[in-house]
Nucleic acid binder design. Structure first.
Length: 741
DNA sequence: CTATACCCTG
DNA sequence: CAGGGTATAG
C-alpha cells in the first residue's frame, strides 16, 4: 500500500494532487510556504493597493486569524458550492490577473483555460518569473505551484528539460492552431469571464488536455451567464440540422427518381453509372445555376433532365450548408438566417412534392422487383434492385448521425451510391444481413474501431476485411468496388452458419478492426488480451478452448476467454477447474461488506478472502479497483456531509456523530449494504466513519481544503483504522453464512 | 515495467 | 462501477 504510509508518499501525493486538483483550485494551488513568500514580496514591494492585499490574505490561508476570518466569510457566501468553486477568492484574483494581463497585453489575450492557447502565456510567464521575478511580482502570480524565490537555482537546472518540453508543446500547439476550437474559445473568452491563471507552468504541460475542460467547471457562475445564450445557439443549430436532414431526404428521393428514370429508359447499368457520374462532375462546369433552377416551375422540374435535377439539388444542399455555416458564426443576425433557409425550404418542398409523386410510382415498381428478387435464386437478380435498395439502407444508417457527414461528403456519397456496382448483384441478398451487422457492431468494439474509422474512411482501400465493416460509416465507404472482394466468400461461403447469430462474426469483425494492420492471429489475440484485459465476464464462461482462426466463432470465444489474463493464466483456465474465473456480483457484494471492516485491504488480504477466485493480474486489479471505488464514494460522502454540517452552522466536530440512523450512515449503508446483508454493520465502522467525518470537518473548517492535497492527511489517518476482517469472509460461502448469523 | 493511487467521465 | 489518463514508487 504505497499510499498513506510513508512520508515520501506525502510529497508524492502533494505533487500528484497538484496535478489533479490543482487545476481545479487554480489559485489555491499555492503551497502555504509559497504563499508566504509571495506575501513577503508583496509587502516588500508595497507598490500595489488594497486589491493585492486581499489576494495575499486569500492565498495565505492558515497564516493567521485575519485570513481565516476572511476566508470563512467568503466561504459562507459561497456556501456549499465550495466543492465546486475552486477557491472563494478566485474571482477577485482572477480579475486582478486579468488586469495585469491587460497591462501586459499580447499573450494574455489568449484564454488560459484552453490548453491550446494557454501554453504560450504560461511560457511567457514562467520566463518572466525566473528572469525578473523581483521586478514584476505580478507575473509570478500564476505559477504559484512553484516556490520561485527559494528554488530559483533548481529551476534553472531544470530549464533545459523544460525547454524541451516547451518545444514539444509548442509544436503540438502549432499543429492544432487551426483547430476550430481555438477560435471558438477565443470567442468565448470575453464572456467566459476572467481567465484563470495556470496553476504551475510545469503542470500546465501535462494538464493541457484537462485544462481544456476544467476551466468550465471552475467558472460555473460565469457559464450560467452564458448558458442561456448557448442554448439558443444549440437550438438554432439543431433546427438547421433538421433542415439539412430534410434536404438530404429530398435529395435521396431525387436520386431514386433519377435512377428510376434511367432505369426505365436504359437497361444497361454501366451506362447509368457513367451518366450519373458525369452529371455529378458537370457541376464544375456550372451548367446549371441555382438561380435559374429556382425559376422553374414544378412541371418544368418534373420534366427536367435528371442531370439538371441532381445539379439543382446539389446547389440547394450546398447553399443550405453555406447558410448553416455562416449562421454558426453570426447567430445575432436572425434575419439573414431566417431568409435563406426559409426560401430554401420552400424550394425544397416544391422539389419534394414533385419527387414524391415520382417516387410513389417508382417505389411500387421497386417493391415488385424486390419480391421477384427474393423469389428467385441469387443469380438472375435484376440490377435494379441493389442499386436502389442499398442506398436506402445506407442512408437510413447515415441519417441516424446527421453530423457524420458534411454536405459535401454526402454529395460524394450520393455520387457513389448512384453508381450501380456490378458486384451489388452478388450482394443483393447479403444486403440486409450486412446492414444488420453495421448496427450491432459498433456496440461491440466502438472504442477500438473508432480509432481507425477516420483513417479507414480516408483510404478505403486499406481494409483487410472490408466485408466486416462494423460501422455505418465504414459501410458507406465499403460500398466502393475494391472493398467487395472478400466479404461474401468469407461471410456467405466461408462461414455460412455463423451469420445467423450475428454476434460472433461481428465480434470478430470488430476485433479485426482493432488492428487492421495485421491479420496475424496470434498477435491479434495478444493485443486483444491486453486491450481487453480489464474486462471481465461475470457469468461462468463455457470453457472449450478453441484455437484462434478455426472459425470466427471460435476465435471470438477464445478471445473472450483470454480477455482477462495472460498466456500463463490461459493455461490455468482449463475447463472445470475448481475456482471461478471471474468476479461475480456476489463477490462484489462481499467486497462491499468487507469494506465495513477494511477500507484499505492489501492485495494479499484480498487473495486470502477471495480464495474461491482464480487470481490473475486482472482479477487482482479489479478487486483493488473496487475498493478504490468504495473509498472514493466513502470520502465523497464524508466531505459532502462535513461541508453540509459546516453550512448548517455546526461549529465543533464533536457535535457530529455517526449513528445508524443518521443520514450519512444511511447513504453509506445504501451503497455497501444495499440488501442489508449486514443487519448490524460493525460498530467499528461507525466509529471510523465518525472519525473520518470529523477529520473532514476539522480540515475544512481549518481551511486546509485550500491545499490541493489536504485529503491526504485524512487518508493517512483513516487507513490506519482498518480492522480485522472476520474469518467468515474467507469462506467462499460467506454470504450465505453471514445471512444466517 | 508493473502495481497502485487518484481523479474524471460515462 | 469501469475505463481512461496520469503520476509515482519499487
Amino acid at each position: 500500500m504505497p499510499d498513506h504510509d510513508s512520508v515520501a508518499l506525502l510529497s508524492r501525493q502533494t505533487k500528484r494532487r497538484r496535478v489533479d486538483i490543482g487545476v481545479k483550485r487554480t489559485v489555491g494551488t499555492a503551497s502555504v510556504d509559497f504563499s508566504r513568500a509571495k506575501a513577503t514580496i508583496f509587502s516588500a514591494m508595497n507598490s500595489h493597493g488594497a486589491e493585492q492585499d486581499v489576494e495575499c490574505s486569500m492565498v495565505q490561508h492558515g497564516d493567521g486569524e485575519k485570513s481565516n476570518v476572511l476566508r470563512k466569510l467568503l466561504k459562507r457566501a459561497n456556501s456549499y458550492e465550495d466543492a465546486m468553486m475552486p477557491f472563494p477568492g478566485a474571482t477577485i484574483i482572477s480579475q486582478l490577473l486579468k488586469n495585469n494581463m491587460i497591462k501586459n497585453g499580447g499573450n494574455e489575450a489568449t484564454f488560459p483555460g484552453s490548453g491550446l492557447s494557454s501554453t504560450g502565456s504560461e511560457i511567457h510567464q514562467e520566463d518572466a518569473c525566473s528572469n525578473s521575478s523581483r521586478e514584476s511580482p505580478q507575473e509570478c502570480l500564476s505559477p504559484f505551484g512553484r516556490p520561485a524565490m527559494s528554488q530559483f537555482d533548481i529551476e534553472r537546472l531544470s530549464d533545459e528539460h523544460l525547454r524541451a518540453k516547451r518545444a514539444r508543446v509548442e509544436n503540438i500547439i502549432r499543429g492544432m492552431s487551426h483547430s476550430p476550437s481555438v477560435t471558438m474559445r477565443a470567442g468565448e473568452h470575453d464572456r467566459e469571464g476572467p481567465p484563470q491563471p495556470p496553476s504551475s507552468p510545469r503542470e500546465s504541460y501535462r494538464e493541457n488536455k484537462r485544462k481544456q475542460k476544467l476551466p468550465q467547471q471552475q467558472q460555473q457562475s460565469f457559464q450560467q451567464l452564458v448558458s442561456a445564450r448557448k442554448e439558443q445557439k444549440h437550438e438554432e443549430r439543431r433546427q438547421l440540422k433538421l433542415q439539412l436532414e430534410d434536404m438530404q431526404k429530398q435529395l435521396r428521393q431525387l436520386q431514386e427518381k433519377f435512377y428510376q428514370i434511367y432505369d426505365s429508359t436504359d437497361s444497361e447499368n454501366d451506362e447509368d453509372g457513367n451518366l450519373s457520374e458525369g452529371s455529378v462532375r458537370s457541376d464544375g462546369a456550372g451548367r446549371q445555376g441555382p438561380d435559374t433552377a429556382a425559376d422553374r416551375s414544378d412541371n418544368e422540374m418534373s420534366d427536367m433532365d435528371p442531370g439538371h435535377f441532381l445539379d439543382r439539388a446539389r446547389a440547394l444542399l450546398q447553399e443550405q450548408a453555406a447558410v448553416g455555416e455562416g449562421d454558426k458564426h453570426k447567430h445575432e443576425s436572425s434575419r439573414g438566417k431566417a431568409h435563406g433557409p426559409t426560401s430554401m425550404h420552400a424550394e425544397g418542398k416544391q422539389l419534394a412534392e414533385t419527387l414524391k409523386q415520382e417516387l410513389n410510382t417508382a417505389m411500387s415498381q421497386v417493391v415488385d422487383t424486390v419480391v421477384k428478387v427474393f423469389s428467385k435464386p441469387p443469380q438472375p437478380v435484376p440490377q435494379v434492385f441493389p442499386a436502389i435498395q442499398m442506398p436506402q439502407d445506407r442512408f437510413a444508417v447515415n441519417g441516424e448521425n446527421p453530423n457524420f457527414h458534411t454536405a459535401n461528403q454526402r454529395l460524394q456519397c450520393f455520387g457513389d451510391v448512384i453508381i450501380p456496382n456490378p458486384l451489388d448483384t452478388f450482394g443483393s441478398i447479403q444486403v440486409s444481413s450486412t446492414n444488420d451487422q453495421t448496427e450491432a457492431l459498433p456496440l461491440v468494439v466502438r472504442k477500438n474501431s473508432s480509432d481507425h474509422q477516420s483513417s479507414s474512411v480516408a483510404s478505403h482501400g486499406g481494409h483487410h476485411h472490408p466485408s466486416l465493416h462494423p460501422s455505418p460509416l465504414s459501410a458507406t465507404v465499403g460500398f466502393s468496388p475494391p472493398s467487395f472482394r472478400h466479404p461474401f466468400p468469407l461471410q456467405l461461403m466461408g462461414y455460412p452458419f455463423q451469420n445467423p447469430l450475428g454476434t460472433p462474426s461481428s465480434g470478430y469483425a470488430g476485433k479485426d478492426r482493432s488492428s487492421p494492420e495485421s491479420l496475424d492471429l496470434s498477435r491479434e489475440t495478444t493485443s486483444l488480451r491486453t486491450k481487453m484485459s480489464s474486462n471481465h465476464l461475470n457469468h461462468h464462461r463455457s470453457l472449450s478452448p478453441s484455437h484462434p482462426g478455426s472459425t470466427t466463432e471460435g476465435l471470438s470465444l477464445s478471445l473472450i476467454k483470454s480477455e482477462c489474463g495472460d498466456l500463463q493464466d490461459m493455461s490455468d483456465i482449463s475447463p472445470y477447474s475448481g475456482s471461478t474465473e471471474g468476479l461475480s456480483p456476489n463477490h462484489l457484494k462481499k467486497a462491499k461488506l468487507m469494506f465495513f471492516y477494511a477500507r484499505y485491504p492489501s492485495s494479499n488480504m484480498l487473495k486470502m478472502y477471495f480464495s474461491d477466485v482464480k487470481f490473475n493480474r486482472c482479477i487482482t486489479s479489479q478487486l483493488i479497483k473496487w475498493f478504490s471505488n468504495f473509498r472514493e464514494f466513502y470520502y465523497i460522502q464524508m466531505e459532502k456531509f462535513a461541508r453540509q454540517a459546516i453550512n448548517d452552522g455546526v461549529t465543533g466536530a464533536e457535535e457530529m456523530s455517526v449513528t445508524r440512523d443518521c443520514e450519512l450512515f444511511r447513504a453509506l449503508n445504501m451503497h455497501y449494504n444495499k440488501a442489508n446483508d449486514f443487519e448490524q454493520v460493525p460498530e467499528r465502522f461507525l466509529e471510523v466513519a465518525q472519525i473520518t467525518l470529523r477529520e473532514f470537518f476539522n480540515a475544512i473548517v481549518a481551511g486546509k481544503d485550500v491545499d490541493p492535497s489536504w485529503k491526504k492527511a485524512i487518508y493517512k489517518v483513516i487507513c490506519k483504522l482498518d480492522s480485522e476482517v472476520p474469518e467468515v469472509f474467507k469462506s467462499p460461502n460467506c454470504l450465505q453464512e453471514l445471512l444466517h448469523e
